[in-house]
């Protein structure tokens, strides 16, 4: 049984649809499985499965210039893997990017291989001057995603939403849930 919350994933997916997102790029990671399946099952959504997250920056840039709103789904390690693309494609060319980043490696993380990325994620985003906000509770998801998209489009710049454990994982209180990721 997957500990990843289907309910929260649905709230996030519906919020993305409400913002007019028609293309998603994704690299699978445990917390994102439901979101990726929802995109796969949605005939209105173009889902692009990537080999590496940085490709998603190029795909979103192409989509934006072609008039299509897109979102990128990735783990925070995928954000680290995308930095050159973010700087030298999205920021250099003023491309809005809506990045949904699963925030692995925070308190409660049980997978040893996820524990370094969590500690650098927010500092990296600040260093890149990328505005970001946490998605922690289902009741603020829709507003925060809409606000992030508004700012991304108004500024023509990347904006990040950090998907936190409390939103994405059910029955996490005792730290039992985890699941392998990348």
């Amino acid at each position: 049984m997957s500990p990843v919350s289907t309910t929260s994933s649905r709230v996030i997916y519906d919020a993305l649809k409400a913002c007019g997102i028609r293309l998603m790029s994704a690299l699978p990671e445990t917390w994102l499985v439901h979101l990726i399946r929802m995109a796969e099952d949605d005939p209105e959504m173009i889902l692009v499965r990537l080999a590496k997250e940085e490709e998603g920056v190029g795909i979103s840039a192409g989509a934006h210039l072609a008039g299509v709103k897109s979102a990128m789904l990735m783990q925070n390690h995928g954000l680290l893997a995308s930095i050159n693309g973010i700087v030298s494609c999205a920021q250099l060319y003023r491309i809005p990017l809506l990045m949904l980043v699963s925030y692995r490696g925070e308190l409660g993380e049980r997978d040893p291989w996820q524990t370094e990325g969590g500690g650098v994620t927010e500092d990296i985003l600040r260093a890149l001057r990328i505005p970001f906000v946490m998605l922690e509770q289902p009741d603020h998801v829709a507003q925060r995603i809409a606000d992030a998209q508004t700012l991304a489009l108004a500024s023509n710049k990347p904006v990040a939403l950090l998907l936190r454990r409390g939103l994405m994982i059910e029955e996490d209180g005792a730290g039992r849930a985890g699941g392998a990721g990348r």
């Binding site: 293309l23 173009i46 692009v48 940085e54 490709e55 998603g56 920056v57 190029g58 795909i59 979103s60 840039a61 192409g62 989509a63 210039l65 072609a66 008039g67 299509v68 897109s70 050159n84 693309g85 030298s88 494609c89 250099l92 060319y93």
Partner: peptide, 22 residues
């Protein structure tokens, strides 16, 4: 014509994004 003057490697990804959307 669009010239991706950095981000080496991503021209093909941009082309893919445009081709899928148009």
């Amino acid at each position: 014509f669009f010239y991706l003057q950095h981000a080496m490697g991503l021209a093909s990804s941009m082309g893919l994004g445009i081709a899928l959307c148009r």
